[in-house]
Amino acid sequence: MGNNDDQPLVLRSDGDHVATLTLNRPAARNALSEAMLTALAERLAEIDGDDEVHVVILAGAGPAFSAGHDLREIRADDDPAFHERLFARCSDVMMQVGHLRQPVIARVSGVATAAGCQLVASCDLAVAGATARFATPGVNIGLFCSTPMVALTRTVGPKHAMEMLLTGELIDATDAHRIGLVNRVVPDQALDSATAALAATIAAKSPLTVAMGKAAYRNQRDLPVAEAYAHTSGVMVDNLQADDAAEGIAAFLDRRPPTWTGR
C-alpha cells in the first residue's frame, strides 16, 4: 500500500524557522518501507544544509505515527541481501536524525510501534497525544525488535526497555512519559499547538549554540566522566569564541533581548 494520490512519501512544510516532515503513507500506517526511508533520508539531508531551519518536527499522516517496517515488503523479498540493505538503511536514518544539526521533535499521534517506536526514541524530544500508544512487538511474530532495541535502550531504563522488548505489549502515553520515552503528553486536540510551542521556544535560541549543544550532548553521552568533562570543556571554550555567545552575554548584562546571527 502506498500514499494517497501519489503524493511524496515525506511531506515538508516550513515556517518560522521550523521544518515539519510528515511521513505520508497513512493507508499503510506510515510503514517504513525502503522507499519511505530513502525519502526521509533525502529530506533530512536537505534540512541539515538549510540555515533557515532551526528545529525539525517529525510527524505521521493519518491515524498512526508509524507502525514500523513494512512486513509485506519484507515478506515479498526473502533475499537476505535485501534485508541487510533495508536494516542498514533504517539504521542510517536513525543515526542521521541524531547527527542532524537541528533538534528533532517527534509529534506522536496514534501508534508508534517497532521501527516507528525506534524513530521516536531516536528523536531528541517527543510530544505525544494522550491516546498515543507505543510498542516493540516483534517478539509476538517471531522477529525480535533487535534494531529498535538500540535506540530504545539509549532512551529508557534497561528494565523498562526489556519489558517492552520481551512482552511486545502496547504502553500508553502516560507510561511512555513515565519511562522517559516521551517528554510531554497533551490532549490529542492540543498536540499540534503544544509541539509547535516547544519548537518555537527552541527555534528562538541561537541556532549555532543549539547545534553545538546537541552535538556535544551526543558526543559526551557514552564517554567516561573525565573524558566527557574534557570534551565539553573544549566545547565551552569554542562556544565562547562565537559572536552569538558574545551577543548573548552582553544582552543578559544589558537586560535586553539578544539578536542572534548564527555565527
Rank of each mutant, 00 (worst) to 15 (best):
D5L: 10
P8S: 10
R12C: 08
D14K: 07
D14F: 04
D14C: 07
D16S: 13
A19E: 05
T20E: 14
L21Q: 05
N24K: 04
R25Q: 12
P26R: 08
R29F: 07
L32I: 10
S33A: 13
S33H: 09
E34R: 09
E34V: 06
E34Y: 12
M36E: 07
T38Q: 05
L40Q: 01
A41P: 02
A45G: 07
E46V: 07
E46D: 15
D48M: 03
D50H: 07
D50S: 06
E52I: 02
H54V: 01
H54N: 13
V56S: 00
V56D: 00
L58A: 05
L58F: 07
A59L: 02
P63F: 08
A64D: 15
A64N: 14
S66C: 09
S66Y: 06
A67I: 11
G68C: 10
G68V: 06
H69Q: 15
D70E: 12
R72A: 15
A76I: 06
D77S: 09
D78G: 05
P80F: 03
A81R: 11
A88H: 10
A88D: 14
S91E: 13
S91P: 01
G98I: 04
H99Q: 12
H99R: 14
L100Q: 09
Q102A: 14
P103N: 10
P103W: 02
I105S: 05
A106K: 01
V108W: 01
S109F: 03
G110T: 01
Q118F: 02
A121P: 02
S122Y: 02
D124L: 04
A126N: 06
A126Q: 05
A128G: 12
A130I: 09
A132E: 05
A132S: 15
A135C: 08
P137N: 03
G138K: 00
G142I: 06
C145S: 15
P148Y: 01
M149H: 05
A151Y: 00
V156F: 10
G157T: 04
K159D: 14
M162T: 12
E163S: 13
M164D: 01
M164H: 03
L165F: 08
L165A: 02
L165G: 00
L166R: 13
G168P: 03
G168V: 00
E169K: 11
D175I: 11
A176N: 09
H177E: 14
R178S: 13
I179T: 10
I179C: 11
V182H: 01
V182P: 00
N183R: 12
N183L: 12
R184H: 12
R184M: 11
V186K: 07
V186I: 08
P187C: 04
D188S: 08
L191T: 03
A196F: 02
A197F: 10
L198S: 02
A199V: 06
A199L: 05
A200D: 10
T201I: 11
I202H: 02
A203P: 03
A203N: 04
A204I: 00
L208V: 08
L208N: 03
L208K: 09
A215M: 10
N219D: 14
Q220N: 07
D222A: 14
D222W: 08
V225A: 14
A226H: 13
T232E: 11
S233Q: 12
S233E: 11
V237T: 14
L240I: 05
Q241T: 13
A242T: 15
A242W: 00
D243L: 07
A245R: 05
A245L: 04
G248D: 04
A250C: 06
L253Q: 14
L253G: 03
R255M: 11
R256Y: 09
R256W: 06
